[in-house]
Design a protein around this nucleic acid. Sequence first.
RNA 1: GCGGACGUGGUGAAAUUGGUAAACACAACGGACUUAAAAUCCGUCGGCCGUAUGGCCUUGCCGGUUCAAGCCCGGCCGUCCGCACCA
Length: 850
Amino acid sequence: MASRYDPQGAEPKWLAAWEAGDVYRAKSPSEAGNAPKAYVLEMFPYPSGRLHMGHVRNYAMGDVVARYKRARGYNVLHPMGWDAFGMPAENAAMKQGVHPGEWTYKNIADMRAQFMKLGLSLDWSREFATCDPEYYGAQQEIFLKLYEAGLIYRKASKVNWDPVDQTVLANEQVIDGKGWRSSAPVEQRELTQWFFKITDYAEDLIAGLETLERWPDKVRTMQANWIGRSEGLQMRFEWSGDTPDGFDDGVEIFTTRPDTLFGASFIALSPDHPLTLQLAEDNEALQAFRAECAKVGTSEEAIEKAEKIGFNTGLSVKHPFEDRELPVWVANFVLMGYGTGAIFACPAHDQRDLDFARKYDLPVIPVVLPSGEDAEAYEIGKDAFTGPGQIFNSDFLNGKSIEDAKAAAINTIESSGHGTRTVNYRLRDWGVSRQRYWGCPIPVVHCPTCGIVPLPKSELPVRLPEQVSFDVPGNPLERDEAWKSCTCPKCGGDATRETDTLDTFVDSSWYYARFASEENMAERAYWLPVDQYVGGVEHAVLHLLYARFIARAMGSVGLMDVANGEPFAGLFTQGMVTHETYKDPDGNWISPAEVNFDGNPPVHGETGAPITVGPIEKMSKSIRNTVDPDAMIAQYGADVARMFTLSDSPPERDVEWTQAGVDGAARFAQRVWANFDALPEAPTQEDASGDGDLRRTSHKAVAAVEQAVDEFRFNSAVATLYEWTNTIKKAADTAPEAERVEACSLFARCLQLFMPHLAEECWSRLGHDTLIVHAPWPKKDPALLKDDLVTLPVQVNGKRRSEVQVAADAAPKDVEAIALADPNVTAHTDGKTIKKVIVVPGRIVNIVVA
RNA sequence: GCGGACGUGGUGAAAUUGGUAAACACAACGGACUUAAAAUCCGUCGGCCGUAUGGCCUUGCCGGUUCAAGCCCGGCCGUCCGCACCA
């Protein structure tokens, strides 16, 4: 009597068995013996309180890798924890009046329970939340060591201010002029803030990208662009005429085009350049001009539309090579944050300079001649020429290529003492101060006599105060006089605590090391780097850049030791889970659970109102197109939910969640079970012999799954499992029993990566009283992977005309003879001259006729 | 503007990296079982011609290289992503 697989009964049973056996605990280096280590990690979640399908997919992918490595004999570390500091907890506190900590720990408990039901092969013994005082205390210790090492400083500067979240943001956290979390337009404010010296590692962070062979090119490119290395010349233009006070040496500029120095027509200062500020002090017109510049926003659109505007200071400088003067302007398109905040402009070969020059009627002197142009007649119109060419109009640089001219110009400037070859980076130091409560307190005090004093280790952790109120906007720590007041560790006098907390990206930039070991550096060295990291591409330049920096910084103070400074040897960025969107006639978003799909068109389940089906979007609460993993698990089981997120699309691409697709995965589970159900009770022998068809398919399937998993092509691995299931079913009446048992045994061990509960049920059905998680990866018989006979397509003039069966190891000559004799071939070759026959062994035969 | 990715049936996709295009799945259609439905099973399923063995066409468009191109090269068109007044 055929039975059905019952996930609701089976899944809790196996979850309990795994927990009882503590089967996913990573072994210590000494326990591991000769087994190689594999550290598999997915980006740890923010405890929002609810699991979503994106989590399911992310963690299901990591779990495939972890299970595969474990089965292949690796000592696997696959931990889980919580990225628990951040704004949402404070927002909840403001709205619902709960303490952020209480809210967070409740969410963690809820989400942990949900995670448990997914059957992930996680080592929960290492779990922590970044808001645990033990964790942030350790982080404060790291802060102090890096401070001591000179990698952290405090300074006043213009910073990005998020007016909604009421805090400063790092450059990486401003997306198109808006806060990454609040989406509010960011303002510029002058504040004194803590910075991490990430720029010290700019060169190393670029160089390290080369070593990251198992990272997506996309992410490497994005990081390289973000760091923005450019080689050039930093040089000084000396005054001609008046010398402004305090700027006796002239104007420092940075350029990547010293080859165009003879084309210089003016100098442009940033509106925020120190010299501009000084000149503005007693110049109202310049003050007005600066105000005008400040009006323009920093969004994409604003910059696109912004017109070039300038202000002539009346000052002028000497050209370094020629006896002429260049006027000094203030221009809105020059950024204070890059290079020196001043440029020399060569309008002929830079579009911005040209736009500016045309507007203010400044000279345009071409110095790069495109090939094929006549030097006498060459003129610049509306478009600057930025392509390759030969230098002209340039005295000692004439006739040189751009590259040669750059080198020659730099050499001349260097030997005259006016400048030096320089590398500039776009990357700015990482501003880590946040004016928020729910974060890691910065472990320093402000003493009226000693200034900034780092706390000794004995006073760590600096705990957040328990009593906190969010009645008034702003930073609650700032208002907490009792918490703030303390004693200076240096002089013993009254002092106040630093009230800024650390950016939560600091928390997530070293947690992988904490998982490896809380304190033991040898154990950290054993596990690190993370062999396979899995997460969303949205962290390409945020978390992933910060973590690479912190790994290096911690390395420099002996807290981490990884090759090349790289914490993540392999990275995989997975796609999102998407879903159709639905709206009612009033334009309100409707969740899929509320839609009745029985009829066509679909209607609202309760009201019967018509529903419009909208575009497929990333699952998101705001457009209500989410599907609750708990509901899926309750109805179909965790295996089906996991399987579906991996089955339909390549892992790096988005997958559209569809009800039909889920039903398909559920049917698959039943077909799998039917194959096992059809086997004899408690078969004794699991290895078959001979070279039967089912054996060949099965051993080939193992090889195919292996390869697909190795290459992160889980959808292909799933397709192989589907196909294999169909083959086993078709062979039910024809293949010998031993072959069917063997096929099922191999199959179950492959299935374990994707549907672990079902795999245990199948394993048990084969008569095992051990767990499949302990079963080694199946061995494939190499002899069965190759066929004795192969079918080769035969083409005539590139068109497929027939196919022939030949021995796999047949000589090309013999294959040629067989192909030429084939009647379907001769029908197309008769009466024609055979010019050439190409035989690609094991692949194809192509006959070329005239 | 700069950088990157992608474009294959009604749909998600596959194609051992230059060698039988469309595996696997979803949807659809036909059939079996059923009083009926669900579930399950069997079959058809890129287009055109043909009763059929079969033939012609087909991987965004145009061209090229090659015995052979979804894959390589050149030029377009389109979609998505990242960065952006970075000197």
